[in-house]
Amino acid sequence: MSSAPKHDVFQAIADPTRRRLLQLLADQELPVTVISGHFPMSRTAVSKHLNILAEAGLVKERKIGRERRYRMETEPLQELRRWLSYYDRYWDNKMAALQKFVESGSGDDPSDPTGPSAPKAAE
């Protein structure tokens, strides 16, 4: 029986450093020594971030000799994608409302001197 992960996908990607790590590992498998060269922090700090990503299932590690190599796993990102797709409808609704507003001709016409943005006469 396996225990639940210590960190979920949302917690893991909440940190900008971990998001950058995922971008770095998206197309390649790298050892921690190479990975840490891309960050202004110690190898130990990078390893801690990698461990959090691994606990969330976003990174897999394999040992080759004395070296540990890391690669990104995309399957856990599907949970994030499903969650975000639920909110796509709100974005789509806002874009549709904006399109309707723009196409209706409502709003501020800069060529109309009496429009809402026209300078007001001093009182």
Rank of each mutant, 00 (worst) to 15 (best):
R68H: 13
G37E: 10
R20A: 11
P40F: 09
L25I: 03
F39S: 01
P5M: 08
Y90S: 08
K63R: 14
F101R: 05
R81K: 14
L53G: 02
T114N: 14
P76I: 08
S104R: 05
G37V: 10
S36F: 03
L50H: 00
R66C: 00
L77E: 02
S111G: 07
L77W: 07
L53T: 00
L98Q: 10
I13K: 02
K6N: 11
P113E: 09
P5G: 09
F10E: 08
Q11D: 05
Q23S: 09
L50I: 06
I64P: 00
L77T: 03
G65Y: 04
D8G: 02
D15N: 11
D109Q: 13
I35L: 01
M41A: 13
Y86L: 14
N93V: 03
R68P: 00
G107E: 05
A54Y: 04
E75T: 15
K6W: 07
S42V: 05
L25A: 01
A97Y: 07
S106N: 14
S36W: 01
P5Y: 05
Q28E: 14
G115Y: 04
Q23I: 06
A12E: 06
P16S: 13
S104N: 02
R89A: 12
P113Q: 08
L80E: 03
D112H: 11
K100N: 05
S3A: 15
E55N: 07
D112M: 07
L21Y: 02
E61Y: 01
E67L: 15
Q11H: 06
V34I: 12
A14D: 14
Q23D: 10
A54W: 02
D15A: 10
T17D: 04
R82P: 04
T44E: 13
R62S: 08
G57N: 06
S2C: 06
V102W: 03
S47F: 01
T74R: 10
V34K: 12
R20T: 07
A54S: 15
R81T: 15
S47H: 05
L30S: 00
A121C: 01
P110G: 09
S106M: 09
G65W: 02
H38W: 06
D15F: 04
S85Y: 11
E123V: 11
V32N: 11
S106D: 13
D27E: 10
T33A: 14
G107T: 08
L24T: 05
R69F: 14
W83A: 15
E29W: 01
V9K: 00
S111W: 12
R43K: 15
I13A: 00
P76C: 07
E55K: 06
I35H: 00
Q11I: 06
K48N: 13
S111P: 01
A54H: 12
D88P: 00
K48L: 15
G105S: 10
A4H: 09
K100Y: 09
K6Y: 12
L80K: 09
S104A: 11
R68I: 07
R66P: 04
K94F: 11
I13Y: 02
A122W: 14
V9E: 03
M95V: 13
S85R: 12
E79S: 12
S111E: 15
P110M: 08
H38N: 12
Q11R: 11
D8K: 01
F39G: 04
